[in-house]
């Protein structure tokens, strides 16, 4: 947790644009695949913003296979790119190929997930969002909104998944500061609308129409959207009777917030090129030891 350090990317980016345009840098990007809504948007953003920073991006989609990623990284090394970005499929099995990159003196940057390597000097830094921070932001907003007095129902993500564990941990850490804040019911809605609806239906019955419940915290927007439907079908008024806070900030939750059915959502950015490229270009200009984790800031959005 000591790694959590948010850099003022804006300051860096202005200098980086100048540095970047001076000489076009070739960067290889090995992406996991294209599952879900978020990752394709993330890939598209990386490709679209590359030219803004004078980067010649070589993009390789690994279709969810690590051997594809290893092959792509070795191809980047053979081409002699200036830097390599990896969004790892899995955390293990990276020592060998990262060693090869190091011997070729090509710096490696991680985005999104982490890798588990003995020698942390094999990569420069990891640039990614912090799921724990997202949980803390949701908790902090709720604490402020409820003045630290709130009984909460929680819709968890897929049991055992990193976002579910981290968002729960961050949220719990904040509400633990307030003796009158408490999670009274928690269940997994598997990150789906259907799951969120099913779980909220059960909560509505087990808590006698959410009596005394002041908030619903969902680990993603889809589950919260399902919960909103369940509450409306039970004649409840989500957003008014119960505070609704979730994570992702997808288009559908923006509509729900505008309509007053939801109150707040923490954005999981897909437009992260503006955070990633400046760090890399700055490093190429001026190689030095960086923190092993650079956190992309998360914003919490409300109706105002």
């Amino acid at each position: 947790m000591s790694l959590k350090k948010i850099i003022a990317a804006a300051i860096v980016s202005s200098s980086a644009i100048i540095a970047g345009t001076a000489s076009a840098q070739t960067i290889g990007f090995s992406q996991v695949g294209s599952e879900g809504d978020w990752r394709p948007a993330f890939s598209a953003n990386m490709q679209e913003t590359a030219s803004d920073y004078g980067v010649d991006l070589k993009f390789a989609n690994a279709q969810g296979k690590q051997e594809e990623q290893l092959r792509a990284v070795r191809a980047f090394i053979a081409q002699g790119v200036d830097a390599i970005i990896i969004a790892p499929v899995v955390v293990t099995g990276w020592d060998q190929v990262l060693q090869e990159a190091k011997e070729a003196e090509i710096p490696v940057f991680l985005v999104d997930r982490d890798v588990d390597v003995e020698d942390k000097s094999l990569y420069v830094t990891r640039i990614s969002a912090d799921f724990n921070l997202e949980g803390r932001l949701a908790g902090a907003w709720l604490a402020a909104e409820s003045l630290g007095d709130c009984k909460i129902v929680e819709l968890q993500g897929t049991t055992g998944s990193a976002p579910a564990i981290e968002r729960n941990g961050g949220f719990q850490a904040v509400i633990d500061q307030f003796p009158a804040m408490e999670i009274v019911a928690t269940q997994s809605g598997d990150f789906t609308t259907e799951g969120g609806k099913r779980v909220m239906e059960a909560f509505i019955k087990s808590t006698n129409n959410l009596e005394g419940i002041c908030a619903s915290f969902a680990h993603n927007d889809n589950m919260q959207l399902g919960a909103i439907q369940a509450m409306k079908e039970a004649g409840l008024n989500p957003g008014e009777d119960v505070l609704m806070v979730s994570v992702d900030y997808v288009p559908a939750i923006m509509d729900a917030i505008a309509a007053g059915d939801a109150n707040a959502s923490v954005e999981l950015r897909s437009a992260v090129g503006e955070f990633i490229y400046p760090v890399i270009l700055d490093y190429l200009e001026n190689p030095r030891e960086l923190d092993k984790w650079i956190v992309i800031p998360s914003d919490l959005h409300t109706a105002n």
Binding site: E35, G36, K197, Q229
Partner: peptide, 13 residues
């Protein structure tokens, strides 16, 4: 129609 959304990845898993 229950969730009025189509979610081919995870519906009825």
């Amino acid at each position: 129609a229950d969730t009025h959304t189509s979610d081919p990845v995870s519906v009825a898993l």
